[in-house]
């Protein structure tokens, strides 16, 4: 029978071993991450009045709520075609009050893979309150606001989540369309029916379309967004989601 002292020692050794194992596995995971070098920390703005953008797509991400008191863990599956270039990460809250933006450099030799965005936030409490549909993260190629920045070519972001962990949400500013559909993989692809977001303040975007990330597949996938206004289909808007050719 081990005495109390031995039990105490065994417990501590076990805790220490578990801690070491966790940190080793974490660093191994970190080691696989692409180094995305930002110009600075995220440029965060807390606006006095809502910022309203004209763009249709305001976010494409897998969302998991941020634990209280933590910095967001934002990962991006960077396609290899974006190597040696810049990417723009924009985060916008549904109420239009919180906005964060930064450009990041993708290493020249990147073969496509998951990278992590440096995101030391000044607004942990505000971000911890954001639920699914309250926050949109949009990752596009080229530097933010640069010439040729194409808002219709984007890659999913992973907000406090791992790749393939949960449903992807596409956040849209449909200008209060009556209904919204997204066809994944072109107009003949899988039809997704979108919903109004649950957010109490639907300013920057108002609609959420959730689908299985497996529908996207590697490489490029076309999403056709169709909105209904006054009992009529509006002109379709096409966006392209680009993922690494090897599934992240």
């Amino acid at each position: 029978m081990p005495n109390r002292w031995e039990i105490f020692m065994i417990r501590w050794v076990a805790i220490f071993a578990a801690f070491m194992l966790a940190s080793v596995s974490a660093s191994a995971q970190e080691g696989n991450l692409l180094p995305l070098s930002g110009n600075d920390a995220m440029n965060e703005m807390l606006n006095g009045s809502p910022e309203i953008r004209g763009a249709l797509v305001m976010g494409l991400q897998v969302h998991r709520d941020l634990p209280k008191g933590a910095d967001p863990d934002v990962r991006i599956a960077v396609p290899e075609t974006w190597a040696a270039g810049e990417i723009c990460v924009r985060v916008m809250s549904s109420d239009g009050l919180y906005e964060a933006i930064n450009a990041h450099r993708v290493p020249d030799s990147a073969k496509g893979g998951v990278g992590r965005v440096e995101y030391a936030t000044k607004y942990r409490d505000i971000l911890a309150d954001k639920r699914q549909g309250d926050l949109g993260i949009r990752v596009t190629e080229k530097s933010c606001g640069a010439e040729g920045e194409d808002e219709t070519r984007l890659t999913p972001a992973y907000w406090n989540s791992q790749t393939g962990e949960a449903e992807l949400s596409l956040l849209l500013n449909t200008m209060r369309a009556q209904k919204t559909y997204v066809y994944v993989g072109g107009i003949s692809g899988k039809r997704i029916i979108c919903d109004d977001t649950d957010s109490p303040s639907r300013y920057a975007f108002d609609t959420i379309c959730q689908f299985d990330p497996a529908l996207l597949g590697p490489g490029e996938t076309e999403l056709v967004i169709l909105t209904v206004v006054d009992q009529q289909f509006q002109d379709p808007v096409s966006v392209t989601v680009i993922q690494p050719s090897t599934a992240p």
């Binding site: 559909y181 066809y183 107009i187 056709v224 169709l226 209904v228 009992q231 009529q232 289909f233 379709p236």
Partner: peptide, 24 residues
């Protein structure tokens, strides 16, 4: 009266009525 189709069929002619034939 516009009765929605169970599954919308984008791409077909929208028709002359007040309700889009692709949707209703």
């Amino acid at each position: 009266i516009c009765v929605p189709l169970k599954i919308p069929s984008p791409g077909i002619a929208r028709g002359e009525g007040q309700c889009d034939d692709q949707l209703y």
